[in-house]
Lab assay of single mutants.
Amino acid sequence: MTSCHIAEEHIQKVAIFGGTHGNELTGVFLVKHWLENGAEIQRTGLEVKPFITNPRAVKKCTRYIDCDLNRIFDLENLGKKMSEDLPYEVRRAQEINHLFGPKDSEDSYDIIFDLHNTTSNMGCTLILEDSRNNFLIQMFHYIKTSLAPLPCYVYLIEHPSLKYATTRSIAKYPVGIEVGPQPQGVLRADILDQMRKMIKHALDFIHHFNEGKEFPPCAIEVYKIIEKVDYPRDENGEIAAIIHPNLQDQDWKPLHPGDPMFLTLDGKTIPLGGDCTVYPVFVNEAAYYEKKEAFAKTTKLTLNAKSIRCCLH
């Protein structure tokens, strides 16, 4: 018999989150649709729960009410004593943790798909938090293969000092899905179709896995975050240069030392320094102006996964 890495157990509980950011409308629209008619997301033997994560922000069509829901799922915020004085999103995070967690427990949901849009030209993107997770690498390989020839990129946010504390991190297997470009507060049919297909293929993978299909060893190309880059700023902290036209919409493309990065209003080009080629992502993302992030630098690498098969009882 072929030796293989056996994944822990079959997958039982899956959640699909929309509206973690209330103005990213593809996930909101799909989740609302699936709450009314969820036939397309159901798979035999699998509990799939669509869920609106930040209903107040969705109602106002804004990213958040008090603070970013997708950055506060750490033990400090989840452990705060519940009171009306807490920011709305912290209270909501505790409610979500109660419903789908608790985080880092045996009772937490197996998989959470968190649906997002970006204003950046990132196409279909899967966000991975753990480079050693054979199950998710296999799932992402399946999704990428199923979507081809449509490109699907994998963004690895594993980093020693950049801690995200994402909404989906309460699950055993957290999956971020990011599709763009799409303006905030807008629905685009092409973007919706791409996100819908990503979810379909992900659920198909889980179904095949649960039925005992063995997935042979595989490898995927990923883009691992190195650092986030702020806009150049003046002495008052105001933005002093904008994304250069040569960099705009060039997510995932190589940016070499000396290539144009920013452009000042008086026409001066600010190039990339250093001696390493990087791959920019979230270029000129609207939501990241407040976070002082013009783009993120990534490096390209390959992740390998062992063969996996479900432990059938």
Rank of each mutant, 00 (worst) to 15 (best):
T2V: 07
S3G: 14
C4T: 12
I6W: 12
A7C: 14
A7V: 07
E8I: 15
E8N: 12
H10Y: 11
H10A: 06
H10F: 11
I11E: 00
Q12C: 10
V14E: 01
V14Y: 02
A15G: 12
A15E: 00
A15D: 00
A15R: 01
I16A: 01
I16L: 14
F17R: 09
F17D: 00
G18N: 00
G19K: 00
T20I: 03
N23P: 00
N23R: 04
E24L: 02
L25R: 08
L25I: 14
T26I: 02
T26Q: 02
T26S: 09
G27W: 02
V28G: 08
V28D: 02
V31C: 11
K32Q: 13
K32L: 05
K32C: 05
W34Q: 02
L35A: 11
N37Q: 14
G38Q: 10
E40P: 03
E40V: 02
E40A: 05
E40K: 03
E40T: 02
Q42V: 08
Q42K: 12
Q42G: 12
R43N: 04
T44P: 07
G45R: 07
G45Y: 04
G45W: 04
G45V: 03
E47L: 09
K49N: 12
F51R: 04
T53N: 06
T53E: 02
N54Q: 04
R56P: 13
A57V: 04
A57E: 04
V58I: 08
K59Y: 08
K60C: 11
C61N: 15
T62I: 13
T62P: 05
R63W: 04
Y64I: 06
I65F: 15
C67S: 07
D68S: 05
D68A: 05
D68R: 07
L69E: 09
L69H: 06
L69G: 06
F73R: 12
D74A: 15
D74V: 07
D74G: 07
L75R: 12
L75D: 12
E76T: 08
E76M: 08
N77P: 10
N77Y: 12
N77I: 08
G79W: 10
G79D: 10
G79Y: 10
K80V: 07
K81Y: 07
M82L: 11
S83M: 10
E84A: 09
E84L: 14
E84F: 15
L86T: 10
P87T: 12
P87A: 15
Y88Q: 07
R91V: 12
R91F: 12
R92M: 14
R92Y: 05
A93H: 15
E95M: 10
E95W: 14
I96P: 06
I96N: 07
N97R: 09
H98I: 11
H98T: 13
H98R: 13
G101E: 06
G101L: 05
G101Q: 06
P102N: 12
P102G: 13
K103R: 08
D104P: 12
S105F: 07
S105E: 15
E106N: 13
S108P: 13
S108G: 12
Y109K: 01
Y109R: 02
I111N: 01
I111P: 01
I111R: 00
I112A: 07
I112R: 03
I112N: 00
F113K: 01
F113G: 02
D114Q: 04
H116E: 04
H116F: 13
N117S: 08
T118N: 09
T119K: 00
G123H: 07
C124T: 06
C124I: 09
C124L: 13
C124R: 05
L128V: 01
L128H: 01
E129F: 08
E129M: 07
E129V: 06
D130I: 02
D130W: 02
S131W: 06
R132H: 13
R132G: 15
R132V: 07
N133H: 05
N134F: 11
I137R: 01
I137H: 00
I137M: 07
I137E: 01
M139E: 00
M139G: 00
H141Q: 08
Y142Q: 02
I143Y: 01
I143H: 00
K144Y: 04
S146Q: 11
S146H: 11
L147W: 02
L150I: 13
L150C: 09
P151S: 11
P151Y: 04
P151E: 13
C152I: 09
Y155Q: 07
Y155N: 09
L156R: 01
L156N: 06
E158N: 10
E158W: 01
H159M: 09
H159K: 13
P160V: 07
S161M: 14
S161T: 15
Y164K: 15
A165Q: 11
A165W: 14
T166F: 14
T167L: 15
R168P: 10
R168G: 15
I170H: 10
K172A: 07
K172M: 05
K172T: 11
P174C: 12
V175R: 01
G176I: 11
G176L: 07
I177A: 03
E178L: 12
E178I: 12
E178N: 12
V179I: 15
G180I: 00
Q182S: 10
Q182V: 12
P183N: 08
P183E: 05
Q184I: 12
G185M: 06
G185F: 02
V186P: 03
V186Q: 08
L187S: 09
L187W: 00
L187F: 04
D190N: 06
D190F: 02
I191R: 05
I191E: 01
D193P: 03
Q194I: 11
Q194F: 09
Q194V: 11
Q194M: 08
R196G: 03
R196D: 03
K197V: 11
M198R: 02
M198I: 11
M198D: 00
I199F: 02
I199Q: 03
L203F: 06
L203Y: 01
D204R: 00
D204P: 01
F205Q: 00
F205H: 00
H207L: 15
F209K: 00
F209M: 04
F209Y: 15
N210R: 13
N210L: 05
G212D: 04
K213N: 11
K213V: 07
F215G: 02
F215L: 05
P216S: 09
P217F: 04
P217V: 05
C218Y: 00
A219D: 08
I220N: 00
E221W: 01
E221N: 06
V222E: 00
K224A: 06
K224F: 03
I225N: 09
I225K: 07
I225F: 09
I226C: 13
I226A: 07
I226F: 11
E227C: 07
E227Q: 07
V229G: 01
V229M: 11
V229W: 00
D230T: 14
Y231H: 04
P232W: 02
R233Q: 13
R233H: 08
D234C: 09
D234V: 05
N236A: 12
N236S: 07
G237S: 07
G237T: 04
I239S: 04
I239A: 07
A240D: 10
A241W: 00
H244Q: 01
P245D: 05
N246E: 07
N246L: 13
N246H: 11
L247D: 00
L247K: 02
Q248E: 14
D249V: 01
W252K: 03
W252C: 09
W252G: 12
L255F: 09
L255G: 00
P257S: 05
P257E: 04
P257W: 01
G258V: 06
G258H: 12
D259G: 05
D259W: 04
D259Q: 14
P260E: 06
P260C: 05
P260I: 03
F262E: 00
F262I: 00
F262T: 02
D266T: 08
D266F: 04
K268W: 05
I270H: 05
I270T: 06
P271K: 07
L272I: 09
L272K: 03
G273M: 13
G274L: 03
C276N: 14
C276V: 11
T277D: 10
V278N: 03
Y279I: 05
Y279N: 04
V281S: 13
V281Q: 00
F282G: 13
V283Q: 00
N284Q: 01
E285K: 02
A286K: 13
A286R: 12
A287D: 14
A287Y: 10
Y288W: 15
Y288H: 13
Y289L: 11
E290Y: 08
E290C: 08
K291E: 09
K291L: 06
K291S: 13
K292D: 11
E293C: 09
A294E: 02
A294R: 00
A294D: 00
A296V: 15
K297F: 15
T298R: 01
K300Y: 04
K300D: 02
K300N: 04
L301V: 14
L301Q: 09
A305F: 01
K306L: 08
K306T: 09
K306F: 09
S307I: 04
I308Q: 04
R309C: 15
R309T: 10
R309A: 08
C310W: 10
C311Q: 13
L312A: 11
